[in-house]
Write a protein that binds this DNA or RNA. Sequence first.
DNA 1: CTGAAAGCGCTTACAG
DNA 2: CTGAAAGCGCTTACAG
Lengths: 337, 337
Amino acid sequence: MTTIYDIAKKTGFSITTVSRALNNYTDVSKTTKKIILDAVTEMGYYPNSSARSLTTKKSWTLGVIFVEDLGIGMKHPFFSAVIESFKQNAEAQGYDIIFLSRNVGGEEKSYLDHASHRGVDGIIIMCSDHKDKEVQQLIESPFPTVVVDLHSDQSSVVYSDNFRGSMLAVDHLVELGHRNIAHIKGHDTTYAGLERLRGFRAAMEKHSLSIPSSYIVDGGFFSVDGGYLAMKELLQLNEHRPTAVFVAGDNMALGALKACKESGITVPDDLSIVGFDDIEVGQHITPTLTTIHQDTDLIGKKASEVLIQQINTRSNEYAAVTIPVKLIVRESTKAIS
Amino acid sequence: MTTIYDIAKKTGFSITTVSRALNNYTDVSKTTKKIILDAVTEMGYYPNSSARSLTTKKSWTLGVIFVEDLGIGMKHPFFSAVIESFKQNAEAQGYDIIFLSRNVGGEEKSYLDHASHRGVDGIIIMCSDHKDKEVQQLIESPFPTVVVDLHSDQSSVVYSDNFRGSMLAVDHLVELGHRNIAHIKGHDTTYAGLERLRGFRAAMEKHSLSIPSSYIVDGGFFSVDGGYLAMKELLQLNEHRPTAVFVAGDNMALGALKACKESGITVPDDLSIVGFDDIEVGQHITPTLTTIHQDTDLIGKKASEVLIQQINTRSNEYAAVTIPVKLIVRESTKAIS
DNA sequence: CTGAAAGCGCTTACAG
DNA sequence: CTGAAAGCGCTTACAG
């Protein structure tokens, strides 16, 4: 491995000057700089990030927390899309991302341990459960953090306009003539679930529509199975079945669709369904899914901007960014006949 | 930030002894160890990974290369599933993963630059294009590497038994009475595409079935759109249309299904389709997709084992692990009538 | 069982 | 415009 000393020896300059040339200091003569840079290329020198981090206290590394309630981790379509965008933007700013976990080398560690050990410059938190203690601990720590899809007063936050998304969904359904609208909600410990439920209630009230208590069913943590089970429950309301269901997540909508299919209910002829997320699959299933689009690219981009900004300014001011959503009408909703 | 010096000062021992206690050296007295560990907990001390890496030349970091031919990165269902499993296993062994990219802070860098800069201990390469020069450069470098879904003589490799998968698919179709079987192949620069094609040809030959040249269509880089276009082409073979199509990837199969739907072809009544991968979506679409299951968990697990083994032994021997596949029969295939 | 000292590869005042 | 020196937080021979 070639070091800064090798370059110094080869070029005859001191390591101080080599370091300066490498870091684009202005007070290095053009000729010197060229000689050094040529040697760098020739010898295949790469600055050692550990040594640099040790002196500068900056790791150029961003921690990612992915709470895996569902055990699917990166397979989660929404979070993985956000992370991809976050990663691209962070990289463009020179940051690498590293996943923070609780299990390092078989030992139980906290996220804070892990983040401190690696000396990350900031952390993005993506998790559904806002009550997680470890996550809370991190938010309260001195690490700059940005939280996606969750609200906090002690951290910057970025999330979709969940409330408005629900309004859009209900408006669409009402426009199609539906009045008996049910809701499969996300779990109460999730911010997105809560907000979407709140939006649903507000929208129904706006249209002077009442909501029988049996019309709100818990679909859990946004999984296909959760949606399936919840829809089964709704389908048992024989006498007074809803004509439309607003499902708080596309994965759950997938499960709901499956339940309908099994019960011989045709969507959208017998029942209209609108989801939330706009995961890619929604375009490929039959019927294609009407849903609320979340702009994952923008969420990831904003999250990285907000976080890096916070790192650079070392400010204690937290940003709260709301990302607009939009309704995507496809085949799973239909005017009531 | 508390350091080893703070612990030393507080406990009255030297930093040498503190370091030893921290690293579970046996030659530290029980009492001493306890005193030190208690101080560690009390003061909230976390060893600094940069300092440690600098002295030990080991970063406990594994690089991940994700070539994004499709620009979807982590959203790729197959690779993201493999990576999730890889990550979990690597973490259990004490390694963190870091994504290697070509663009660091706006400057064009090679993967090798990035890997050298971060001093990763090993690298997992997941990319479809086996001709990529940068990837080739990495494989030839001294870094321990493991390659997924690609063959190389200069690196350990882990991949599904693609050849066998194609055999299973064709056998299944033949058993159902199909004789006119077409193939939507993956791009020729991809190892998986090539192997699956080879398996398809061998299987057809085994059954003494001929393959008209028009029956093999290039679906490109395993995207939904590529499959859609390829299927459109097959559907134009009016007179001599195949009764079944073996598609080299599930995403492409999704596109193929869409093309059929648009053209009024009912799957499986008019045409049987079998995919490859077993992505989760396949279970939720209509019809559900018959496919070849790839064991992404095992692929990721084996990849991490092979890589870590190579790191530990510093051997130059490369492992080649083939992961078994299996046929999953669902609704998209049917006996010919 | 414990400690003093050197060294890992860098950056950054300080001095000239 | 350039260099000598100190220091970042660890680990590891070496010595006792």
